[in-house]
């Protein structure tokens, strides 16, 4: 699943995006959220612990979910 510019294609919150080869979850997060402490991350349905964001690599075809709190009953 090599992308046009040599990146990796992954699904982030259900949308396909391209990330640089060798990217970590931490680098991906910094691209899309302003405050890491407000989100939690799943990679292929497994929790990515906060402490490992910067050491967890993103692999081609990963399904990544970034969630936060919203109002609810």
């Amino acid at each position: 699943m090599r992308g046009g510019s040599g990146g990796l294609r992954v699904r982030l919150n259900g949308e396909e995006i391209e990330v640089e080869r060798g990217s970590t979850i931490g680098q991906l997060l910094d691209r899309v959220v302003s405050d890491r402490s407000r989100v939690a991350v799943e990679r292929n349905r497994e929790i990515v612990p906060r402490a490992t964001y910067d050491t967890t690599p993103v692999a081609a075809g990963d399904a990544i979910e970034v969630v936060s709190l919203v109002g609810g009953g």
Binding site: N13, E15, V32, D35, V39, A40, V66, V67, V70, G72
Partner: peptide
């Protein structure tokens, strides 16, 4: 108080206020 978890809206995350 109860809260729910949902996907972050990646297009508008930076301007959106957080419940917390």
């Amino acid at each position: 108080v109860t809260v729910a978890l949902r996907r972050v809206d990646l297009k508008h995350e930076r301007e959106r206020r957080n419940l917390l």
